[in-house]
Design a protein around this nucleic acid. Structure first.
Lengths: 213, 213
DNA sequence: GTCTATATCCAGATAGAC
DNA sequence: GTCTATCTGGATATAGAC
């Protein structure tokens, strides 16, 4: 009924286990059991346990570079989509959150980075890049353009990006830990974004003119 | 030069190891080695490895309840310290961050909760309570009082608390992962708080008069 | 490629001398 | 309380039949 994709099945089973127990606490037998083979057979596909993690990291990195909107310097690409209303932003962000929460490999990779961040320097760097630096850089650019276009008030776009993204980052982690709280989190995200656009609303000089009629 | 406090030394060594490797990945031999005894001697102090974690969790919980400003319902207690200037807030928050970053037991307990959150339901609950719910509740109350006193503009205090705290929460995690970035983080915290007070500044009609000269 | 069998090692835990 | 010695099981990994 299968085979030929055993190597891929091993990677998937490993990620699932590593994302909950961590690398060290997961045994080769467990992985083999999840795939439906004996542990000895696993060594036909990978030289050792460490090689599984290495392959996994490589795959996670490639998936990220290939598909994440935060990975690329395509910050100019979707400039056409601007300007943005608060409601559109809520929809867009909630959609993105739902996607990365429920996509199995993205979700598991994120959890694995969280678990291994204090133990494995390579994964620590990856964690900072994927779930902090790249996201902040992306939104700093986006917000800077929204300021240029008069959608948001003039202010420090780097701090604005942090105030926009980092609460969401914490809420995603909360959902990873307690999936039942997703609805509550979605409501908070909505209120957060609405309020963000409100407090960073430009003081329009046009208001002046409108008030003069 | 010692003994009588061996049990406490075991707890401290265990927390240090658990906070980097996690519970499962840490061996009893490692703990014993860190304390300077053989692993068999360790069983004179704890029934088994799990009992060490249990005692650790109990201790962490007690320390938190006894000393954390977020644990208690003393939200009315320091109401006297209000109102608060942005600069005072920056000093106060930076001090708190430095403290919880460098206090060994607080720092290690926080990391352990991060590492074990997807594996251990008890620690997951503790993580949500100590590093999310309690903090947000505390600052929601604080901000509500600052609004009452006219220091901050009228707005949803719960979302304001999230926008205030959660970026800081992420920055603390970043420092746990990459301690060298503490100076950078401190600067971000300062800019963040200054900007927070600015955007939630109550709209004074006096601004109008100033602009008319 | 998968299996059984095995080698080697180290894990958690106990017994009993000191 | 700490030690050495030991038990038992499970860990990673290899050898070799099929």
């Amino acid at each position: 009924m299968d085979r030929g994709n055993t190597k891929q099945e091993i990677l998937e089973a490993s990620l699932e286990l590593f994302s909950v127990q961590g690398f060290e606490a997961t045994s080769v037998s467990q992985i083999a059991g999840a795939v439906g083979i004996r542990k000895a057979s696993l060594y036909s596909h990978f030289e050792n346990k460490q090689a599984i993690l290495d392959a996994l990291v490589k795959e996670v990195l490639e998936q990220y570079e290939a598909h994440s909107i935060f990975a690329k310097a395509d910050q100019e690409k979707d400039a056409g989509d601007l300007p943005m209303t608060p409601d559109a932003a809520v929809q867009m962000i909630q959609g993105q959150i739902r996607y990365i929460l429920h996509d199995p490999s993205i979700s598991r990779a994120r959890k694995m980075l969280v678990i291994e961040q204090f133990q494995n320097p390579e994964l620590a760097k990856l964690q900072t890049k994927q779930n902090y630096s790249d996201v902040l850089q992306y939104f700093t650019g986006l917000i800077a353009r929204l300021i240029q276009q008069g959608v948001l008030a003039e202010d420090d776009p780097e701090i604005m990006a942090a105030q926009f993204c980092l609460p969401i980052s914490v809420w995603i982690n909360l959902c990873d830990r307690e999936p039942d709280r997703e609805p509550e989190v979605m409501a908070l995200v909505s209120r957060h974004i609405q309020q963000f656009f409100k407090v960073y609303q430009p003081k329009e000089q046009t208001v002046f003119f409108q008030e003069l009629d």
